[in-house]
């Protein structure tokens, strides 16, 4: 049911990828994306694919879960592939049709690029808990505090939002069950009827979301929360040896990609 949606879903585990510092993983994802966009020829695409598959094996993430996450993107992937297929100049596959061999090559590369892009970012969210992720983000963006960017408040809001997604989903499930028990029907009927059928869910959901927000604010204030100034952390992030190794490997990978781009392979 609703619980099955994979939205920033985290699969707990204890692999080397899970143990990496969230900051390392965030940096590596940025590196990965830059590297991916350097790929020009088949060899460089092969290198990125190889690196991705290697990370997937290391993190014990099943390909099934990745494909599940790709499903909502299918439309965009298909559209990009089609556009590239028809709008690239070159030798026509069938004379008179606007399909070219160059277009075919490019659309396959485009598909690969989007799939790899999504897979790479999924690896981050699948192996890093949302709280660790926002902690890492806050520390990486820390320097921006100097120019008055409210980094702490932004990441706090982010982690609260992430924290409450499962709660709200559970709540929605509960309210849906309760209304179903009174014979509410969410699956059949015309579009207007179905939109109206959502009302018995949305009203209680909003009421409870506001109540929750209120309670959370009171709970935070009663524990003397007053913003990020001078706050220490329960879990301090520390770089370990494997973080440095991972970063060096990432740098080497990026350098390799630049070299390959230079030679156009």
């Amino acid at each position: 049911m609703l619980k099955d949606i994979t939205l920033g879903q985290f699969f707990p585990g204890n692999t080397i990828v899970h143990r990496l510092d969230p900051r390392t993983k965030l940096i590596l994802v940025v590196v990965y994306i830059i590297a991916l966009f350097q790929a020009k020829g088949w060899i460089s695409y092969g290198a990125v694919t190889l690196a991705t598959v290697l990370c997937m094996i290391l993190s014990h993430i099943r390909p099934k879960n990745i494909f599940k996450g790709l499903k909502p993107m299918l439309f965009i992937i298909a559209l990009t592939a089609l556009l590239n297929l028809f709008y690239t100049e070159g030798r026509e596959i069938i004379p008179g049709w606007h399909m070219t061999w160059e277009g075919l090559e490019r659309s396959v590369q485009m598909i690969l690029r989007i799939v790899l892009l999504i897979t790479g970012t999924f690896l981050l969210t699948y192996t890093t808990s949302p709280i660790a992720l926002t902690d890492g983000l806050e520390m990486l963006l820390g320097p921006l505090k100097k120019i008055k960017v409210p980094v702490h408040e932004m990441t706090l809001m982010m982690s609260m939002a992430l924290r409450f997604i499962p709660t709200l989903i559970e709540e929605t499930d509960k309210i849906m069950s309760a209304q179903k028990a009174r014979g509410a029907d969410f699956e059949t009927g015309k579009l207007m009827d179905r939109a109206k059928a959502l009302l018995p869910i949305l009203v209680p959901l909003f009421v409870s979301a506001f109540r929750r927000a209120d309670e959370l604010a009171v709970a935070m204030e009663s524990r003397c929360y007053h913003g990020g100034e001078g706050r220490t952390r329960m879990k301090t992030l520390r770089f370990a040896a494997h973080d440095w190794i991972a970063l060096i490997l990432g740098a080497l990978f990026l350098a390799g990609m630049f070299v390959m781009k230079r030679y156009g392979i």
Binding site: K174, A178, R182, G183
Partner: peptide, 20 residues
């Protein structure tokens, strides 16, 4: 599955949160 909901009425925990 639908008809049984008329025969078996279920009041959930904290049912006041379902009022709308």
């Amino acid at each position: 599955r639908r008809d049984v909901k008329w025969q078996v009425g279920l009041v959930f925990q904290y049912p006041e949160y379902q009022l709308f």
